[in-house]
Nucleic acid binder design. Sequence first.
DNA 1: CTCACAACTCAACAGGCGTTGAGAAAGTTG
DNA 2: CAACTTTCTCAACGCCTGTTGAGTTGTGAG
Lengths: 213, 213
Amino acid sequence: MTIQKQPTPTARRGRRPGGVNTRAAVLEAARARFAREGFAATTIRLVATDAGVDASQVMQYFRSKDELFAAVMAIIPASLERFNTAFEGPDEHLGERVVRAYLSAWEGAAEESEPLMAMLRGAIVNDTASGQLRDFIQSRLLIGTRDRHDPDAVLRAGLASSMLVGIVTGRRIIGVPTLVAADAEELVAVVGPAIQQILVPTAAAADPSTAPA
Amino acid sequence: MTIQKQPTPTARRGRRPGGVNTRAAVLEAARARFAREGFAATTIRLVATDAGVDASQVMQYFRSKDELFAAVMAIIPASLERFNTAFEGPDEHLGERVVRAYLSAWEGAAEESEPLMAMLRGAIVNDTASGQLRDFIQSRLLIGTRDRHDPDAVLRAGLASSMLVGIVTGRRIIGVPTLVAADAEELVAVVGPAIQQILVPTAAAADPSTAPA
DNA sequence: CTCACAACTCAACAGGCGTTGAGAAAGTTG
DNA sequence: CAACTTTCTCAACGCCTGTTGAGTTGTGAG
């Protein structure tokens, strides 16, 4: 190639504004749709209409529906940082703190709860969501736990996590009347002790067969 | 209309055999597909191929995809009868019996577990499945419970149920490694006491604010 | 003003879906 | 055998989907 025609390399020219706002609007609309309708029922055209743009614009900013969904899921890790504090501190009332952390994360502001709802709804049909939820259940509760090398502790953490996910699913997705009607603090009062039991088993209730190695 | 031509009303004539078998084959193929792939990913053509028939045959026996799915879901109530025995008997080890009942139902023979898996996978996108799971969580655990008029007991039953559904989901749908690797009896040992705590709260751990009316 | 480039619109594609209706094949009855 | 009813096959329909590419508009730089 002949190096001849080269415009001033210092600055770009052409249209610029608006683009950033559009991308954010699309992402927000997608977040809400994925959270409320799930992955399959959310169409690119619908998201585009919600955001007030053309469908092909969605494809231009996010290259495919899967990548759009992945962009929504990418919000989750940031919001999970706030989980960690719940697990620090004494064992006493650990269950209570953990339950409260779950409920507040899933029922708080849209920016935090919607990606989590999208993950839950998408976990069955989308691999990204499934993997994210898998990692979430597997390893979230381990942060702050002393015995992260004890296989029994890992199992207990995973069990507590999946149980709490079950409660959130029943309350926010399936819509079990009793769970929907209950006050969050009521749930903390009932579930807290049970989660405590799982995470910090009392000698009386623990089974004798799984003594630490 | 002129009442003139009327064939012998005693017996029907024409082709008969095969039909019953075909219907059963389609239902079985659908059960497996819905359980393994979920509602959306299961197509009528796929089910037809599995059953070795034409797609339009599926439509002839079950009038639509929704009715085919409903037919699979209709199997569940029968298998739930076996749940009831778990809740009869003394409060002692009630949690253990309940956990075992859940695990064995979801991990037993295909005829029993597949409809349950289909319900779980379909609960997010299909209204029939969602309603079935809602009723399931809401009322299943109440059978055999003494205080079925105590609102607190209803809440506790719903919570225990949704927690167990959460565990099954993590183990069978999300595929959380720790939960998948664990032996069923291991889960019973860890989760049993926690469910016991929920269903039959000990005075020590129960919150003082919800005293019976 | 003019040009170049980014943001945006429009129309269309190919593919899969649930569903339908007409017609061929197969078996039962008289 | 012949009449008749049911089961099954085949091809197509309309619809909606994710995705693409060409063309239009607006805006900043020269």
